[in-house]
Design a protein around this nucleic acid. Sequence first.
DNA 1: TGAAAATATTTCAAACCTAAAATATTTGTG
DNA 2: CACAAATATTTTAGGTTTGAAATATTTTCA
Lengths: 164, 164
Amino acid sequence: MNKSEGLSEQAGNETSDLSKARLRAWLQILKVSRKIEGELREKMRTEFNTTLPRFDVLAALYRERDGMRMSELSKSLMVSNGNVTGIVDRLVAEGLIVRMPVENDRRASIVRLTPAGEKDFAERALVHESWVSELFDDLSSSDADALIRILRNISHHNEAPHHD
Amino acid sequence: MNKSEGLSEQAGNETSDLSKARLRAWLQILKVSRKIEGELREKMRTEFNTTLPRFDVLAALYRERDGMRMSELSKSLMVSNGNVTGIVDRLVAEGLIVRMPVENDRRASIVRLTPAGEKDFAERALVHESWVSELFDDLSSSDADALIRILRNISHHNEAPHHD
DNA sequence: TGAAAATATTTCAAACCTAAAATATTTGTG
DNA sequence: CACAAATATTTTAGGTTTGAAATATTTTCA
């Protein structure tokens, strides 16, 4: 029933020490993630006059200069399809991205940065990186590496199983 | 200008390796946090017929059996005051918590679990812990400790400075 | 070919979330 | 005491988010 419980687990011991340690780890991830996200949202608002979700979309499109489909975008950001529609609508209205038809598939559309969007993001990305670096001021190089390694293990375990 | 840059930083080197490592670490935190949060939200919905924010409120009140003020609640959950108002309204409607007047201060109110809310949460908390433990199945005891230590460092650095 | 299934996206309703304004009450100070 | 400042909470407007339903188009296959 509980995959996490190995040979040494005693019957009747409902929540093991390991299980409790994992819960604490999760709550700590959540705490840091909320705190940092809040700080960045505030910076985005006051200094860039934009929002975190919009910045995230621009970042994704900056990595894929030829553009992405709506579904690729939502998958990459790990948010729902419907959510991306609204954010893309606003970024289009701001002139930072465009929707383009897809050859041979009139259901889909490709979204990509406009020159203005590309310029905007390139400038802001550097400032964003400096904000993050300040917020993680106490994170040493070796701790950053350890953190990344541990978290990658967790993501890999929870990777969506792919269809074949 | 950039507190994170030490003596060895070269002028003109706009984003140091350390700064990039920290950015990668942040993006990885965000990725794990979104993935896990999504999985837990889905479980909450399908198996408990509730939402993560509501569960979080119950969890906070379960730790403080005598109840908390609205402001303590929002601070503890790191969300805005207005946000908590709505969630508390819904939990009151569900009969899981109650608002009580505060002696000598008619501005404030204290929120606490009803017996039903206490019972409900106690049962669900165990299941929740087992979900988390499964999602973190690959996280060893020592990695959990390392993760907690590193993340605590980060939270402490970003702790809100207190008023004296 | 032509209907059913699959796919890509948008729309919708409900909830969540924030920042700022509004409301109600208490505290501090002349 | 009066009344300004501070405090606790709610309300409001606008944006974000989800899951499900709706729409449009493409693919599959009998």
